[in-house]
Amino acid sequence: MKEVAFGQYYPVDSFIHRLDPRLKLVFLIAFITAIFIASNFWGLGACVLVLAAIIVFSRVPLGKVLRSVRAIAFLVLFTAVINLLFYAGETVYFQWGILVVTKEGILFSVFLVIRLLLLVICSSMLTYTTTPVALTDGIESLLTPLKWIRFPVHALALIMSIALRMIPTLMEEAERIQNAQKARGADFESGNIFRRIKAIVPILIPLLLSAFRRADELGDAMEARCYMGGKMRTKYKKLKFSWRDGLSLFVCVLLITAVVLLRIYLGDVI
Protein backbone atom coordinates (compact mmCIF):
# COMPACT_ATOMS: atom_id res chain seq x y z
CA MET A 1 0.00 0.00 0.00
CA LYS A 2 2.87 2.33 0.79
CA GLU A 3 4.34 1.77 -2.66
CA VAL A 4 1.32 2.86 -4.65
CA ALA A 5 0.39 5.63 -2.27
CA PHE A 6 2.10 8.20 -4.42
CA GLY A 7 2.92 8.25 -8.05
CA GLN A 8 1.53 5.45 -10.11
CA TYR A 9 4.60 3.96 -11.67
CA TYR A 10 3.84 0.83 -13.62
CA PRO A 11 6.97 -1.32 -13.36
CA VAL A 12 7.64 -3.03 -16.67
CA ASP A 13 10.55 -2.71 -19.06
CA SER A 14 9.56 -1.01 -22.31
CA PHE A 15 10.77 1.36 -24.98
CA ILE A 16 8.97 4.23 -23.23
CA HIS A 17 10.21 3.25 -19.77
CA ARG A 18 13.78 3.37 -20.99
CA LEU A 19 13.55 6.87 -22.40
CA ASP A 20 15.57 9.57 -20.71
CA PRO A 21 13.33 11.34 -18.16
CA ARG A 22 14.44 14.70 -19.55
CA LEU A 23 13.23 13.69 -22.98
CA LYS A 24 9.91 12.55 -21.53
CA LEU A 25 9.40 15.85 -19.73
CA VAL A 26 10.20 17.85 -22.86
CA PHE A 27 7.98 15.54 -24.89
CA LEU A 28 5.10 16.05 -22.47
CA ILE A 29 5.38 19.84 -22.69
CA ALA A 30 5.58 19.66 -26.49
CA PHE A 31 2.65 17.28 -26.64
CA ILE A 32 0.46 19.52 -24.48
CA THR A 33 1.42 22.45 -26.68
CA ALA A 34 0.46 20.40 -29.74
CA ILE A 35 -2.92 19.61 -28.21
CA PHE A 36 -3.61 23.30 -27.85
CA ILE A 37 -2.26 24.24 -31.28
CA ALA A 38 -4.53 21.66 -32.90
CA SER A 39 -7.63 23.52 -34.04
CA ASN A 40 -9.44 20.78 -35.92
CA PHE A 41 -10.07 17.07 -35.82
CA TRP A 42 -7.16 16.32 -38.15
CA GLY A 43 -4.72 17.95 -35.77
CA LEU A 44 -6.20 16.17 -32.78
CA GLY A 45 -6.14 12.97 -34.79
CA ALA A 46 -2.39 13.31 -35.19
CA CYS A 47 -2.08 13.71 -31.40
CA VAL A 48 -4.31 10.69 -30.78
CA LEU A 49 -2.18 8.65 -33.16
CA VAL A 50 1.04 9.56 -31.36
CA LEU A 51 -0.47 8.95 -27.92
CA ALA A 52 -1.82 5.58 -29.05
CA ALA A 53 1.66 4.64 -30.22
CA ILE A 54 3.07 5.69 -26.83
CA ILE A 55 0.51 3.56 -24.99
CA VAL A 56 1.24 0.53 -27.17
CA PHE A 57 5.01 0.86 -26.81
CA SER A 58 4.82 1.50 -23.06
CA ARG A 59 3.19 -1.90 -22.41
CA VAL A 60 0.94 -0.29 -19.80
CA PRO A 61 -2.42 -2.10 -19.99
CA LEU A 62 -5.25 -0.08 -21.52
CA GLY A 63 -7.43 -0.59 -18.44
CA LYS A 64 -4.83 1.10 -16.31
CA VAL A 65 -4.52 3.97 -18.75
CA LEU A 66 -8.27 4.52 -18.77
CA ARG A 67 -8.37 4.46 -15.01
CA SER A 68 -6.50 7.77 -14.97
CA VAL A 69 -9.47 9.24 -16.81
CA ARG A 70 -11.91 8.22 -14.11
CA ALA A 71 -10.74 10.98 -11.81
CA ILE A 72 -11.85 13.66 -14.26
CA ALA A 73 -14.85 11.81 -15.70
CA PHE A 74 -17.23 14.25 -14.08
CA LEU A 75 -15.35 17.27 -15.41
CA VAL A 76 -15.38 15.80 -18.92
CA LEU A 77 -19.07 15.05 -18.77
CA PHE A 78 -19.90 18.47 -17.37
CA THR A 79 -17.89 20.28 -20.05
CA ALA A 80 -19.46 18.17 -22.77
CA VAL A 81 -23.04 18.74 -21.61
CA ILE A 82 -22.64 22.47 -21.06
CA ASN A 83 -21.11 22.96 -24.50
CA LEU A 84 -23.64 20.70 -26.10
CA LEU A 85 -26.59 22.64 -24.69
CA PHE A 86 -25.36 26.21 -24.88
CA TYR A 87 -23.08 26.41 -27.90
CA ALA A 88 -24.58 28.90 -30.33
CA GLY A 89 -24.45 27.19 -33.69
CA GLU A 90 -26.39 27.53 -36.91
CA THR A 91 -27.65 24.07 -37.73
CA VAL A 92 -30.23 23.58 -34.99
CA TYR A 93 -31.27 19.99 -34.28
CA PHE A 94 -33.30 20.56 -31.15
CA GLN A 95 -34.44 23.53 -29.08
CA TRP A 96 -36.13 23.82 -25.71
CA GLY A 97 -36.24 27.23 -24.07
CA ILE A 98 -32.69 28.51 -23.93
CA LEU A 99 -31.26 25.04 -24.52
CA VAL A 100 -30.16 24.37 -28.08
CA VAL A 101 -28.49 21.40 -29.58
CA THR A 102 -26.71 22.31 -32.78
CA LYS A 103 -24.44 20.44 -35.15
CA GLU A 104 -21.61 22.84 -34.27
CA GLY A 105 -22.28 22.31 -30.56
CA ILE A 106 -21.97 18.55 -30.91
CA LEU A 107 -18.75 18.82 -32.89
CA PHE A 108 -17.28 21.29 -30.43
CA SER A 109 -18.19 19.13 -27.43
CA VAL A 110 -16.58 16.09 -28.98
CA PHE A 111 -13.51 18.18 -29.78
CA LEU A 112 -13.22 19.40 -26.18
CA VAL A 113 -13.71 15.93 -24.73
CA ILE A 114 -10.95 14.50 -26.92
CA ARG A 115 -8.69 17.38 -25.95
CA LEU A 116 -9.30 16.83 -22.22
CA LEU A 117 -8.77 13.07 -22.47
CA LEU A 118 -5.53 13.57 -24.38
CA LEU A 119 -4.28 15.98 -21.71
CA VAL A 120 -4.97 13.63 -18.84
CA ILE A 121 -3.77 10.47 -20.51
CA CYS A 122 -0.51 11.95 -21.77
CA SER A 123 0.35 13.32 -18.32
CA SER A 124 -0.39 10.04 -16.61
CA MET A 125 1.68 8.17 -19.21
CA LEU A 126 4.66 10.11 -17.89
CA THR A 127 4.04 9.00 -14.32
CA TYR A 128 3.19 5.44 -15.36
CA THR A 129 6.52 5.02 -17.11
CA THR A 130 8.89 7.12 -14.99
CA THR A 131 9.85 6.59 -11.35
CA PRO A 132 9.60 9.66 -9.10
CA VAL A 133 13.35 9.46 -8.57
CA ALA A 134 14.04 9.54 -12.30
CA LEU A 135 11.62 12.45 -12.67
CA THR A 136 13.48 14.40 -10.02
CA ASP A 137 16.79 13.73 -11.77
CA GLY A 138 15.24 14.84 -15.03
CA ILE A 139 13.87 18.06 -13.59
CA GLU A 140 17.20 18.86 -11.96
CA SER A 141 19.06 18.29 -15.18
CA LEU A 142 16.61 20.36 -17.24
CA LEU A 143 16.81 23.24 -14.78
CA THR A 144 20.62 23.25 -14.74
CA PRO A 145 20.87 26.29 -17.07
CA LEU A 146 19.09 28.32 -14.39
CA LYS A 147 22.26 28.12 -12.30
CA TRP A 148 23.44 31.01 -14.42
CA ILE A 149 20.89 33.28 -12.82
CA ARG A 150 21.84 31.87 -9.41
CA PHE A 151 18.71 29.78 -9.08
CA PRO A 152 19.47 27.08 -6.45
CA VAL A 153 18.85 24.11 -8.75
CA HIS A 154 20.78 21.66 -6.59
CA ALA A 155 18.90 22.64 -3.43
CA LEU A 156 15.56 22.36 -5.21
CA ALA A 157 16.41 18.89 -6.50
CA LEU A 158 17.53 17.77 -3.06
CA ILE A 159 14.33 19.11 -1.51
CA MET A 160 12.28 17.18 -4.04
CA SER A 161 14.17 13.96 -3.49
CA ILE A 162 14.00 14.23 0.30
CA ALA A 163 10.28 14.93 0.04
CA LEU A 164 9.85 11.79 -2.05
CA ARG A 165 11.95 9.83 0.39
CA MET A 166 9.89 11.04 3.35
CA ILE A 167 6.42 10.38 1.95
CA PRO A 168 6.28 6.69 2.92
CA THR A 169 7.81 7.45 6.33
CA LEU A 170 5.28 10.16 7.11
CA MET A 171 2.39 8.07 5.79
CA GLU A 172 3.39 5.29 8.13
CA GLU A 173 3.58 7.74 10.99
CA ALA A 174 0.19 9.27 10.20
CA GLU A 175 -1.30 5.81 10.26
CA ARG A 176 0.33 5.09 13.60
CA ILE A 177 -0.94 8.33 15.13
CA GLN A 178 -4.41 7.70 13.74
CA ASN A 179 -4.44 4.24 15.27
CA ALA A 180 -3.27 5.64 18.57
CA GLN A 181 -6.10 8.19 18.51
CA LYS A 182 -8.60 5.52 17.56
CA ALA A 183 -7.42 3.36 20.43
CA ARG A 184 -8.32 6.24 22.71
CA GLY A 185 -11.78 6.56 21.23
CA ALA A 186 -11.32 9.15 18.50
CA ASP A 187 -13.89 8.85 15.72
CA PHE A 188 -12.73 9.51 12.16
CA GLU A 189 -15.51 7.82 10.23
CA SER A 190 -18.81 9.31 11.29
CA GLY A 191 -20.37 12.75 11.22
CA ASN A 192 -20.61 15.31 8.45
CA ILE A 193 -17.67 16.58 6.46
CA PHE A 194 -16.83 19.36 8.91
CA ARG A 195 -16.71 16.98 11.83
CA ARG A 196 -14.45 14.67 9.91
CA ILE A 197 -12.11 17.47 8.91
CA LYS A 198 -12.00 18.56 12.53
CA ALA A 199 -11.12 15.02 13.57
CA ILE A 200 -8.01 15.19 11.39
CA VAL A 201 -6.50 18.07 13.37
CA PRO A 202 -5.29 15.82 16.22
CA ILE A 203 -3.42 13.77 13.60
CA LEU A 204 -1.93 16.69 11.74
CA ILE A 205 -0.43 18.47 14.72
CA PRO A 206 1.66 15.58 16.06
CA LEU A 207 2.62 14.72 12.49
CA LEU A 208 3.82 18.24 11.86
CA LEU A 209 5.79 18.35 15.10
CA SER A 210 7.44 15.06 14.34
CA ALA A 211 8.27 16.21 10.82
CA PHE A 212 10.16 19.15 12.31
CA ARG A 213 12.04 16.84 14.66
CA ARG A 214 12.88 14.55 11.77
CA ALA A 215 14.09 17.47 9.68
CA ASP A 216 16.37 18.51 12.50
CA GLU A 217 17.89 15.06 12.84
CA LEU A 218 18.19 14.64 9.10
CA GLY A 219 20.07 17.93 8.96
CA ASP A 220 22.58 16.67 11.53
CA ALA A 221 22.96 13.37 9.69
CA MET A 222 23.54 15.17 6.40
CA GLU A 223 26.13 17.46 7.92
CA ALA A 224 27.85 14.48 9.50
CA ARG A 225 28.13 13.08 6.00
CA CYS A 226 30.00 16.19 4.85
CA TYR A 227 27.07 17.91 3.16
CA MET A 228 27.86 21.55 2.46
CA GLY A 229 25.54 22.53 -0.32
CA GLY A 230 26.10 22.02 -4.01
CA LYS A 231 29.68 23.23 -4.11
CA MET A 232 32.27 20.76 -5.43
CA ARG A 233 29.68 18.03 -5.32
CA THR A 234 29.85 15.24 -7.89
CA LYS A 235 26.95 13.15 -9.09
CA TYR A 236 26.90 9.39 -9.21
CA LYS A 237 23.92 9.00 -11.51
CA LYS A 238 24.32 10.31 -15.03
CA LEU A 239 21.46 10.55 -17.46
CA LYS A 240 22.26 9.21 -20.92
CA PHE A 241 20.70 10.18 -24.19
CA SER A 242 20.28 7.16 -26.46
CA TRP A 243 18.99 6.42 -29.96
CA ARG A 244 15.54 5.89 -28.44
CA ASP A 245 15.54 9.47 -27.24
CA GLY A 246 16.71 10.71 -30.64
CA LEU A 247 13.90 8.85 -32.35
CA SER A 248 11.33 10.17 -29.88
CA LEU A 249 12.56 13.70 -30.34
CA PHE A 250 12.12 13.27 -34.09
CA VAL A 251 8.51 12.09 -33.57
CA CYS A 252 7.95 15.07 -31.32
CA VAL A 253 9.18 17.57 -33.95
CA LEU A 254 7.14 15.78 -36.59
CA LEU A 255 3.99 16.02 -34.50
CA ILE A 256 4.37 19.72 -33.82
CA THR A 257 5.03 20.43 -37.49
CA ALA A 258 2.03 18.35 -38.55
CA VAL A 259 -0.28 20.02 -36.09
CA VAL A 260 0.85 23.51 -37.10
CA LEU A 261 0.46 22.76 -40.82
CA LEU A 262 -2.99 21.22 -40.26
CA ARG A 263 -4.04 24.30 -38.35
CA ILE A 264 -2.85 26.64 -41.11
CA TYR A 265 -4.32 24.69 -44.03
CA LEU A 266 -7.52 23.25 -42.60
CA GLY A 267 -8.61 25.98 -40.19
CA ASP A 268 -10.89 25.65 -37.14
CA VAL A 269 -13.19 22.88 -35.98
CA ILE A 270 -16.30 24.10 -37.66
Partner: peptide, 10 residues
Protein backbone atom coordinates in the same frame (compact mmCIF):
# COMPACT_ATOMS: atom_id res chain seq x y z
CA UNK B 1 15.87 10.18 9.81
CA UNK B 2 19.22 9.73 8.18
CA UNK B 3 18.54 8.48 4.69
CA UNK B 4 18.34 11.18 2.09
CA UNK B 5 17.46 9.24 -1.07
CA UNK B 6 14.69 6.78 -1.86
CA UNK B 7 16.95 4.15 -3.38
CA UNK B 8 19.67 2.37 -1.40
CA UNK B 9 22.58 3.02 -3.77
CA UNK B 10 21.67 6.70 -4.16
Amino acid sequence: NQTVASIVED
